[in-house]
Amino acid sequence: MQTVVYRVKGPTWGIAIDLTAGSASAAAPPAGAERISNRIWLDTTPVLEHPPADRSGLRLTQDEVGWLRHGLGLATEAIEAARPPGRHTVVTVHRVLFPAADFQVEGLAGAIVEWSGKEFGIPEVAVGLSFDRAANRFLFDWQPHRRAPGTGVRRVRPARDLRGRPLTDASGTE
């Protein structure tokens, strides 16, 4: 389990979020977790259904969990590339703590993106960040992780039936 402290500082205030999460590898899709991609799953049960026993974290709303999903979604391609093929990765958020006064919900996406970078050793997700003085809010411009040019070329495999035999077209050729 790893904890990150995500901080964004502005001219008058900032966002500070402590997020503790862990990851596990599974052979089959996990029960009770939300699918983020084909092989990435998010379990927010510890922060959605009950507060931590030590009262050091907060219970999140569905809207707040949506921002965790968004942030993890931005990093899924890189996480899948870093994890063993054919295995599912379950990310479980165990604790989230932030001050109610200086908080912006979008910061939860940034916190889980930063956690993902440390947990899986993936490149940073580009985040365009500015401060709107009139609205007294941070503006996030999320950019998903992009592969380097020339990587991730997919090979086209011949079509096969359920028994692994090559499928043929009407002319009898593959």
Rank of each mutant, 00 (worst) to 15 (best):
G172A: 02
L139V: 14
A100W: 04
S171R: 05
G117V: 02
E64T: 03
R133L: 00
A81N: 13
G66L: 04
N136C: 02
P99C: 13
E64R: 07
R83T: 15
G128M: 05
V156N: 00
R55Y: 02
Q62V: 14
A134W: 01
D141K: 07
P52W: 06
A100F: 03
S116D: 07
R69G: 01
H88A: 11
T92P: 11
H88L: 14
Q104C: 04
L108F: 05
D43K: 10
G121E: 11
A170K: 05
S171E: 07
T168V: 15
S116I: 03
W142M: 04
I79R: 05
G71R: 02
A159K: 14
F103Q: 01
D63E: 10
G86F: 05
L48G: 08
T61S: 15
A53H: 01
T168M: 14
T168I: 14
G121R: 07
A109P: 06
G57Q: 03
A75Y: 06
L68H: 09
R147M: 09
R160T: 14
P99V: 09
H88P: 11
I79L: 09
V113D: 04
A81L: 13
L97A: 15
R55E: 08
L162G: 08
R69E: 11
D161I: 09
D102H: 11
L58F: 02
R83S: 15
T92S: 15
E114T: 04
G57W: 06
D63W: 01
E77L: 15
E49P: 00
V127C: 11
F120M: 01
V113N: 06
L167P: 03
D141M: 05
F120I: 04
H145Q: 14
A170S: 07
L108C: 06
L58Q: 11
D63P: 01
D63L: 10
R157P: 00
V105M: 00
E49L: 13
R95P: 04
I79Q: 04
Q143P: 00
P158C: 07
H88W: 10
G164S: 03
P52Q: 08
F103G: 02
P158H: 12
A101H: 08
V90C: 05
L58R: 13
D102E: 13
L162I: 08
E119I: 00
G107H: 02
R147V: 04
A109K: 06
G152A: 11
R163G: 07
L139F: 01
A134M: 04
Q143T: 10
R83Q: 15
G73M: 08
V153E: 09
L97Y: 12
L72T: 07
V93K: 09
G172N: 04
G121T: 06
L139M: 05
P144Q: 13
G152F: 06
V96H: 07
L68F: 04
R160K: 15
I79A: 08
N136E: 11
V156G: 00
F140W: 13
S56N: 10
R165K: 07
D161W: 07
H50F: 09
